[in-house]
Design a protein around this nucleic acid. Structure first.
Length: 252
DNA sequence: GTTGAGCGTT
């Protein structure tokens, strides 16, 4: 996605990946490109996003073609304030497939040997949450907070997704926004250029019209609500629809 | 609209 219009990793054979942390959730590859490109040949910029919500996770990967340029970028851009936050630039420790890399360069190809790719926990980000209760209970406080925070985020995402059956409206909306980058691109990385800041009046309005429920004055509303049907106030009282469980509510 | 430790995609 965050490539030159292509999908998937382009060529990580002789590239040096930098891990950019502490960037804002609105920062895109287009924002980072001009900064990193000044210090060397940037091959690719990838910002991991949430698969459910599509939002940025707050960090990015910048691939350089040469190590010296990557090192220079780390030295110059580490601590640089972008969008109000200090981003931390450092060499990546792991590759796309959890391979061990040195100075951003992959020195160990993904070995299919079982036991070899032990490294960190497998799929710890996608593990289910049913068995985590007893797990995090035995954790220390610091870790507990750490785990809880992570779960809080995931819970939020999962909850929104669990509401829908198959097609979530928000998911469709997120994708629709990303596909809007067909008019023009300002950088080789046309990844996701959402008009976050320069929001022109061309913004699409939501299906829900600006219908304020409190638009009507209390008097009018009372009047309308009181006589939706002329026969509602029949002297018998029983003639009313069975929607009024409490007859005294009419007196108010 | 929010959040803030961390290591990545067709």
């Amino acid at each position: 996605m965050s490539h030159f219009g292509r999908t998937g990793p382009p060529d990580i054979t002789d590239t040096y990946s930098l891990l950019v942390l502490n960037i804002t959730f609105r920062t895109t590859a287009d924002d980072l490109y001009p900064l990193f490109d000044k210090y060397g040949k940037v091959v690719d910029i990838f910002i991991p996003r949430d698969r459910r919500t599509g939002e940025s996770r707050g960090f990015a990967f910048v691939r350089y073609k040469y190590a010296d340029e990557a090192q220079k970028a780390v030295d110059r851009l580490d601590g640089r304030v972008v969008d109000g936050r200090e981003m931390a630039v450092q060499f990546a420790k792991y590759g796309p497939n959890a391979e061990r890399i040195q100075q951003g360069r992959i020195i160990e190809k993904v070995s299919r040997i079982k036991g070899s790719s032990r490294s960190r926990s497998p799929c710890r980000r996608y593990r289910d949450d049913h068995y985590r209760d007893r797990e995090y209970r035995s954790r220390s406080r610091s870790v507990d907070r750490y785990e809880r925070d992570r779960y809080k985020r995931r819970e939020r995402d999962y909850r929104r997704r669990s509401r829908s059956h198959s097609l979530s409206p928000d998911y469709d909306r997120g994708r629709g926004r990303g596909r809007d980058t067909k008019h023009h691109r300002r950088s080789p990385f046309d990844s996701a250029s959402p008009p976050r800041r320069s929001l022109s009046p061309y913004r699409k309005e939501s299906p829900r019209r600006s219908l304020s429920p409190k638009k009507r004055s209390p008097e009018k509303r009372s009047h309308i609500e009181r006589s939706p049907t002329p026969r509602s106030r029949s002297p018998l009282g029983r003639a009313m629809d069975s929607r009024s469980p409490s007859p005294h509510a009419d007196e108010e």
